[in-house]
Computed example of a mutant assay.
Amino acid sequence: MLDVVEYAFEGDRQCARDYLRGLPVGAFYTYVLLTPGGLPFYVGKGKGDRVLQHEAEALRNSKIHKTNPYKCNKIRKIVGLGDSVGYRIDRVYELDEIACLKREQALISHYGRRCDGGVLTNLAAGLGSPAARDPLSAERHAATLSGVVEGDGERTALNLYLQSLGAVASVPIKPLAAYRSRLVGAYPSPKALKNASLRNGLTIVASVLASGLRITSGTIVPRKFMIAPEAENWPLDGPPPEVVEGVIENGAASDILKLGLVSLVRADRPEDEGFRIDAGQAARIIGLVGRDYLEEWDLV
């Protein structure tokens, strides 16, 4: 059983900064970001002041897609309520980056990502690419990660992003660069649809979250949006794409229109279309995905 009871440090931001200054130069460490109640919501591995950078990323004046939007909204929610993020330094590794990476992966597995029924906002499952590769091959590791597509960084990034929001049988978002030739204008699906599914709700939530919007009357949800995968947990060899443009694919766009969850805002190009939400539609989406879930990420 993984030992998570004993750790090197836990405290507020300033105390964490003071603790980090006392570490050996170049030392690696695993860390956990905590809610004010002490619940873990993000696990990482880093050196220097990496653990402190997440809060700065979330609060600086930049577009939400430039970082993990799920994690950033969590931090914004905590700070917006007048509370503070808690910091835990789990283990310190002076020289062994591989051991640090393995510990990070073990912590993520222990607490679980939200898409796996756990509590973490991590998009990937850990064991990213260090300078010296772990003897565990990238191929074997990637095969264990849901949503990872060997040789396709953009699709992997979008799959991991969607699955961090919730479990879906198929991902309704495609990389725009690869999908543009197949993209057509959205129209209500001609097939019979009895009930809206969680997948339909998450199709909308994915764009709302990445675009820094909220599910409320008058919101226009863009069909196209951008995310930027985090390098520290990237599961493929080489760095992740700096930015990935995703687009709601044809069938998923048709379904949310057919179900009346949104109304179409037309455009000359399919990728520039939007989906307007009125008060009744917002209530349906909230009921479909869950108010508590959406409130936690400040989407309502």
Rank of each mutant, 00 (worst) to 15 (best):
S84K: 08
S84P: 01
V85A: 04
V85F: 11
G86Y: 10
G86F: 09
G86L: 06
G86R: 08
Y87D: 12
R88G: 15
R88C: 15
I89Q: 13
I89Y: 14
D90V: 10
D90N: 15
D90F: 15
R91S: 15
R91C: 13
R91P: 15
V92M: 14
Y93N: 06
Y93M: 07
Y93F: 15
E94W: 01
E94R: 12
E94H: 03
L95S: 15
D96Q: 02
D96L: 04
D96H: 14
D96A: 07
E97R: 12
I98V: 09
I98K: 07
I98Y: 11
I98W: 04
I98G: 05
C100W: 04
C100I: 03
L101M: 11
L101N: 14
K102S: 12
K102M: 07
R103H: 14
R103Q: 14
R103L: 01
R103S: 12
E104S: 10
E104G: 10
E104W: 13
E104C: 08
Q105K: 09
Q105C: 13
A106Q: 12
A106V: 03
L107W: 11
L107H: 04
L107G: 08
I108S: 07
I108P: 02
I108H: 08
I108W: 03
I108G: 05
I108F: 09
S109D: 15
R113T: 13
R114Q: 12
R114M: 05
R114Y: 02
C115A: 11
C115E: 08
C115W: 04
D116N: 09
G117L: 12
G117P: 03
G117A: 12
G117I: 07
G118D: 03
G118V: 09
V119N: 08
V119M: 04
L120Q: 03
T121A: 13
T121N: 09
T121Y: 05
N122W: 11
N122V: 03
L123H: 01
A124W: 03
A124T: 03
A125N: 10
A125L: 11
G126D: 10
G126N: 06
L127R: 11
L127Y: 09
L127F: 10
L127P: 14
G128W: 07
G128P: 09
G128T: 03
S129N: 11
S129K: 02
P130Q: 12
P130H: 09
P130D: 14
P130L: 08
P130T: 04
P130E: 14
P130I: 06
A131P: 00
A132N: 07
R133A: 04
R133S: 05
R133M: 01
D134V: 03
P135F: 02
L136G: 00
S137E: 07
S137R: 01
S137K: 01
S137Y: 02
A138L: 06
A138W: 05
A138G: 13
A138F: 06
A138V: 07
E139H: 05
E139S: 13
E139W: 11
R140W: 06
H141G: 00
A142K: 00
A142F: 02
A143F: 09
A143Y: 02
T144F: 10
L145W: 09
L145T: 01
S146G: 09
S146V: 10
S146D: 13
G147R: 02
G147I: 06
V148K: 06
V148S: 06
V148Q: 06
V149E: 07
E150Y: 10
E150S: 05
